[in-house]
């Protein structure tokens, strides 16, 4: 795992609200899903209660392909948080379905992470209550 969590410290956990609950529930079941408009079919992330295209309140949850490419990245040389050990990289992944997700990479050196690199989702089991979607390089 590329991000070295300091297990003696609490890791910042996501805030779950009624709009994001289905996303995080799926993640805890090791599934990556995105919000989809129940009427016009438009995908969106982060979750919000209304479709910005047709203003429908009908929401479906679509399983993601989990596949994408690295769109941007940054390497921390100093940790911003006691729960994480520097250096570590944060990536912005563009998934094949066109949505973007902030995440980390696993099983790779920081300097080997490149824009355009093909990646796929894996689930990092941080605690009994917290999985996070992460990505690994696809050869």
């Amino acid at each position: 795992m590329t991000v070295n969590y300091n297990k003696n410290e609490m890791i910042p956990a996501p805030v779950v609200d009624p709009d994001s609950k289905a996303f995080w529930d799926a993640v805890q079941n090791q599934e990556l899903v995105f919000q989809k408009c129940g009427d016009c079919g438009r995908l969106r992330h982060p979750p919000r209660p209304v479709c910005p295209k047709c203003r429908s309140l009908n929401i479906e949850w679509e399983p993601s392909s989990g596949k994408g490419t690295i769109y941007s990245k940054t390497i921390y040389r100093k940790s911003p948080h006691p729960g994480m050990k520097a250096p570590f990289t944060v990536v912005l992944v563009e998934l094949d379905e066109g949505l973007k997700l902030i995440s980390n990479m696993v099983d790779i050196k920081n300097d080997d992470i490149k824009i355009g690199m093909q990646v796929e989702v894996v689930f990092d089991n941080l605690t009994d209550d917290l999985n996070l979607p992460k990505f690994r390089k696809v050869d």
Binding site: P12, P14, V15, N104, L132
Partner: peptide, 11 residues
């Protein structure tokens, strides 16, 4: 939407 960034250290 900080919940979508903070757990990854984008803090």
């Amino acid at each position: 939407h900080y919940g979508y960034i903070m757990p990854y250290g984008l803090a």
